[in-house]
Design a protein around this nucleic acid. Structure first.
Lengths: 240, 240
DNA sequence: GCAAAAGTGTTAGGAGTACACCCATGC
DNA sequence: GCATGGGTGTACTCCTAACACTTTTGC
């Protein structure tokens, strides 16, 4: 133990920052991701139950400590994989949380990410998640979370609203074919307001982001709806 | 030295993050601020010359290592004060830089801030800054900087353009009275494009952010210009 | 045939943009 | 009196928001 500590000290000597100064000691970095989905018009977030102290038994967002050999975003993805088994998820950074005592143990700064998962993957993942103590919570039914994760989640939700009107995060929610009413339902769930069907269609079609597949399929209504899919390369455009 | 190290280890035992695991050791947090001003239509950034290794002799943005007893934003302000003598500056966080080897010595994550200073304070500060090895650089004449600060600065400039069209950062640039042509010049410098005089005036007046002082004063032209000032409480509004 | 959701066009108001002439002052 | 920048109004375009009826299907 002590030899590794001494090695540490040797590595650090020479930096402008003096490791002996306790002003700087024992800082760490959390990478935290709020993973959202929309099912049946309900916006949901993925939470994990903590198995260890601190906050043992509490629900928290997915995340953990950054490793020294990985970039931030890779750390966020690794934590998601380790805690929930989810792979191949795209995440976008949206904030930093560094309040003095956000971790009761040592000084931790949290770099916060947003991810989204389409509802088909939600169904497939449901069993996997159950065994790893993870579950989806409707965003208006989230319990008090460990650490400052309620604060991070509130901020993530605001940011999700911003991102969905100006980025390609949507494509992650609809990797396959979809109808415009379906897409509109997701917008309405996330933005928490009703939109006009005609104006929504007009705007989506005018943005040149989606292709008509020629197919139709039933969604909620009785009349089959035209199917669309996102173009392969979509630019990030402001929608509302 | 060793006793302090042992104390550290004891403090950390019990966290979910095991300090003995070198995956997590020796992480630190930089707080970096890009401080801008506009003088005579030129956007400038404040740089400081490093006195120590690494990057000794290189120019960098103001900043340094976060202390354990301060919030992020306070750390950013403290670093500004220590490195340049500037007090009473408002800063806004805009990004995170965490590439693996951005510091050659140990794993450092940088939390990046933007600040602005009005040109009157620039004049007052000029001597102070000189003695502390700090100077203003026109943004198109910035030398290669230490660390990843060129990257941070490029990102800060983009963010400055976003902020100036949607936030009250302007008030920091014009704490006192100003004329609309003066204000317009600053916009044009930061956004790097010409604006129409009539439309600019129309928009600024319609936003209800500024008051007519009733005074006039000369700026660049021969005809005295009406003076305005920002209202005490201004909301963050989108301008362009 | 009727309930339920999908599809479609038009119009009015607001915001943005483009543009030209007169005004006050210094020299 | 003329050069320099400051101040003002109008018209066109585009985007947004509001709004109602017809179509397809399941039952």
């Amino acid at each position: 133990m002590l030899t590794s500590v001494i090695k540490t000290l040797i590595i650090v000597i020479g930096d402008d920052m003096n490791v002996k100064d306790k002003l700087y000691k024992n800082q760490g970095i959390h990478v935290i991701t709020a993973i959202f989905t929309v099912e049946q018009g309900i916006t949901k977030v993925l939470l994990v139950k903590r198995k260890n102290e601190p906050f043992k038994g509490d629900w928290i967002l997915t995340g953990g400590a950054l490793h020294n050999d990985e970039d931030l975003i890779d750390g966020a993805k690794r934590e998601i994989y380790e805690k929930t088994g989810i792979k191949d998820i795209e995440v976008e950074q949206f904030g930093v949380f560094g309040a003095l005592h956000r971790s009761p143990v040592m000084r931790m700064i949290a770099i916060a990410y947003i991810g989204v998962i389409d509802s088909n993957r939600v169904k497939i993942l449901r069993e996997t998640l159950r065994t790893s103590n993870a579950d989806w919570f409707a965003i208006d039914k989230v319990p008090p979370l460990g650490y400052d994760h309620n604060e991070i989640l509130a901020s993530a939700l605001m940011e999700l609203q911003n991102k969905i009107i100006s980025s390609n995060i949507l494509k992650s929610l609809f990797p396959g074919d979809f109808s415009l009413p379906e897409l509109q339902k997701v917008y309405e769930a996330i933005l928490d307001k009703k939109l006009d069907r005609r104006n929504f269609r007009k705007k989506m079609l005018s943005l040149n982001l989606i292709d008509d597949t020629g197919d139709t399929a039933k969604f909620e209504g009785k009349k089959p709806a035209k199917q669309y899919r996102f173009k392969n390369e979509i630019e990030s455009k402001k929608i509302f």
